[in-house]
Amino acid sequence: MSFTLATWNINSVRLREALVLKLLAEESPDVLCLQECKSPVDKMPLDAFAEAGYGHVVARGQKGYNGVAILSKIPMAEAGSQDFATLGHARHVAGTLENGVTVHNFYVPAGGDVADRSVNEKFGQKLDYLTDMRDWFRDSRPEKSILVGDLNIAPREDDVWDHKKLLKVVSHTPVEVEHLAETQEAGGWVDVTRRDIPEGRLYSWWSYRAKDWDGADKGRRLDHIWASADIEQAGHSSRILRDARGWEKPSDHAPVFASFDL
C-alpha cells in the first residue's frame, strides 16, 4: 500500500478549519497529523473533516492550548497516548493504520524564551519531555512506525537561518539538539525528510513577527517526519509546502509531507 502523510502545527484547528480543508482538498494526503489544535476533541470540526473524506480520527485535546489529532482516509485504530514528563498536556497520540503502521503524533513543548532550566521552568519541562521520550523508545524500540510532529527543535546548522546567531536561542541550543539526537538514536529513528533532502537550508516555521516572512526567510525546521529503521527505505518524496505559510490568516508553520510504499 502506498500512502502520503503530512504533519502540520495548525495553531488552532477551529480558527483555521478552512485552511485544513484547503490542504485536504488541494494536496489530499492520506493521513494528516495536526498539532497545537487548541481545542477539546468534542469541539474540533471533525464532522467537516469527515465530509472531506477523513472519517478516521484519533485525538487528544485541551481547551485553549496543546492538542494533537490524526485524520486519516485509511482505517485506523486507536494506539494510545503518553503523558511524558507528567505535564498533563495533550501532546501525543498514536494510531495504527490498517497496513499495520503505527503513526506517533507529537507536540514537544516549545521551552519558553530562556535556555536555562534554573530560571525557566518551561525549558526544563522540554528537556524532561525529551528524556522521557528517549527512555520510552529505548524500552520499547519501535517497529513499523512513523513519528511526526512539531518537535520544536531545529537540529542541523542548515535547519536554521543563522546557526551562530541561534546557538543560544531556544530550539537550536546544543543541549536541545543533544536531547533530540538521543531520542532519535534510542528509537532507531531515521529522519526521512533529511534523508530525502540531504543538502541545503530547509525550514518549516517562520515567525509571525517578521512583516515579510518570505523575503526575510528567517526560518527554522521545527517539524519532522521520522521512520523506524525497518521501514525507512519505504519513505520517499519528502517536501515542505512553503506556500501554506502565505495563505490567508496562516499558521506560522508549513505542512511537511512524505510518502511511503508499504
Rank of each mutant, 00 (worst) to 15 (best):
T7Y: 11
W8H: 09
N9F: 12
I10C: 07
N11I: 04
S12F: 01
S12Y: 06
R14Q: 13
L15P: 13
E17C: 15
K22I: 07
A25R: 14
E27K: 07
D30Q: 08
L32K: 07
C33R: 10
K38E: 07
V41N: 12
D42N: 12
P45M: 14
L46R: 04
L46Y: 10
F49H: 05
A50Y: 13
V58C: 02
N66P: 09
N66W: 06
N66T: 13
V68P: 01
V68S: 03
L71P: 02
S72R: 05
P75F: 11
P75G: 00
E78C: 15
G80T: 07
S81A: 13
D83I: 01
D83W: 04
G88N: 03
A90C: 08
A94R: 05
L97G: 01
G100P: 02
T102Y: 00
V103H: 00
F106H: 05
V108G: 01
G111F: 12
D113L: 10
G124Y: 12
Q125P: 09
D128R: 03
L130H: 12
T131Q: 05
F137D: 13
E143G: 04
I146P: 02
I146S: 00
R156N: 13
K164P: 05
L167V: 00
V169D: 05
V170N: 07
V170L: 06
T173K: 00
V177T: 04
L180F: 00
A181T: 04
A181S: 14
E182G: 14
E182D: 15
Q184V: 15
G187C: 04
V190T: 14
V192F: 07
T193N: 05
I197S: 03
S204G: 04
W205G: 01
G215L: 10
G215Q: 12
K218L: 08
R220T: 09
H224T: 01
W226I: 06
A229C: 08
Q233I: 08
Q233M: 11
D243E: 15
A244F: 03
A244E: 08
E248W: 13
P250H: 01
H253M: 04
A254D: 05
P255K: 00
S259W: 02
S259C: 03
D261E: 12
